[in-house]
Design a protein around this nucleic acid. Structure first.
Lengths: 229, 229
DNA sequence: TAGATTGTTAATCGATTAACAATC
DNA sequence: TAGATTGTTAATCGATTAACAATC
């Protein structure tokens, strides 16, 4: 196995962001293959299905080890397992949800934290009528008890789904109480230089605006094409 | 202005994906500056605040034109306006929401389509109790009427927020009725080779899994660091 | 064995950064 | 004018692709 730094229990080289962002796509495709009963796949086939070159796929995997077999390809289940470990899905990270409003609710309702290997342990809200209730087995606690909760329970990931106005204050509390990472659904820019926490942003507007750009680009191209005739 | 292809009403060169994905971030930051009453900014300052080099920022903007002034920098309001046009925010695209369940509701409730220059014209669902009602001014119509609606109303963007099982069928209907793009909140991979539509995926799990990776990476590094002592 | 396909090294391509003349 | 900062060209860096020996 390749290595330039040898840290912790997993050997790691510094892997580029682009590679990391492709890993969940590999995982999803492998799940899909597994579901349809396919248990062997080559980098060529995988590439075709994901719109990537076989070279890139082999290069990506080789960042983490040797998962294939010459002349055969990759065992789907084994590769899937390896990628899940690389992503940390076997580590049982505990998460809490801050803000049980619409987005928070939608997440508890539709999104499977468990499938990502993450345990959603509690939710926090200010709304009296919600506090003390259970939602899909997740207790909704008072926002006032957040700090206390964090002192007693180690939590890796905070899912931030509060109104924009509350975001910075909550973030401060989270950082002071040793949270590792924020999964940020607010439209606030939490990423500061030298911030001690990791932030992963889910900016809906960025996504929609990119799409708007691509739509515009294509419409202009089509307009030009028909004008040429 | 730079140009290698001259299409439609906007001059365009082929701009890389990376640049496009940064545009919404510029927009957000410019909005923020504008709100705090700042009306002038240099590529250096902008770079500092976004964690980018001044070079990159100037390079990015130069894909679309000359928006600055030597010795001065950029006018915040003017630059903001230019970027919004580049993103197509002035084109008034019409969108419909397919699936008014939790995610759909959360979007209608919390997300401002208008702020992205997009008009959310209608929502569609199968649930009888919802059909005929209005939500934040958006009428919820029967899924059965979708095809008919599309034939009568030109729609650019479909926001897909239906259960996984329904996704492929709905997508087929949307494509057959000439939709331009899908903003995909289901976990289905809709991107096919040679697909006639644009797809922008919002894969929550991909996002959380990337975060899980970075958390794991950091924990391993810390573990190794403390083991060395 | 012959064929297939890996892991890895080398070559290419594209994106980011640096440098600088132009100019406000 | 002098200072600042752009837009753009050239240099560097990193990511993707191609090629191929190793080997199942």
């Amino acid at each position: 196995m390749l290595r330039t730094e040898e840290y912790g229990k997993v050997k790691r080289i510094k892997v580029s962001n682009n590679v990391i962002r492709r890993l969940p796509r590999y995982l999803r495709k492998l799940d899909e293959l597994q579901e349809s009963g396919i248990n062997r796949v080559s980098s060529f086939e995988l590439g075709q299905q994901l719109g990537l070159t076989p070279s890139q796929i082999r290069q990506d995997f080789s960042c983490f080890g040797e998962f294939g077999q010459q002349g055969y390809g990759y065992n789907v289940a084994a590769l899937r397992e390896q990628i899940s470990v690389i992503l940390g899905m076997d580590r049982g990270y505990r998460a809490i949800l801050i803000g049980a409003g619409n987005i928070g609710h939608a997440l508890m309702d539709n999104f499977s934290f468990q499938q990502c290997g993450v345990e959603l342990a509690a939710a926090f809200d200010v709304k009296e009528s919600l506090i003390g209730t259970l939602f899909h087995g997740v207790p909704i606690l008072s926002m006032d008890s957040l700090e206390d909760y964090l002192k007693k329970n180690p939590v890796a990931i905070a899912v931030l789904a509060v109104p924009k106005e509350a975001a910075l204050n909550v973030t401060k509390t989270l950082i002071e109480n040793g949270i590792e990472a924020i999964w940020n659904f607010t439209n606030m820019e939490l990423t500061e230089p030298n911030s001690p926490i990791l932030v992963e942003n889910v900016h809906f507007s960025d996504s929609l605006l990119s799409l708007s750009y691509f739509v515009s680009e294509r419409m202009d191209e089509n307009a030009a094409r028909s004008a040429q005739e």
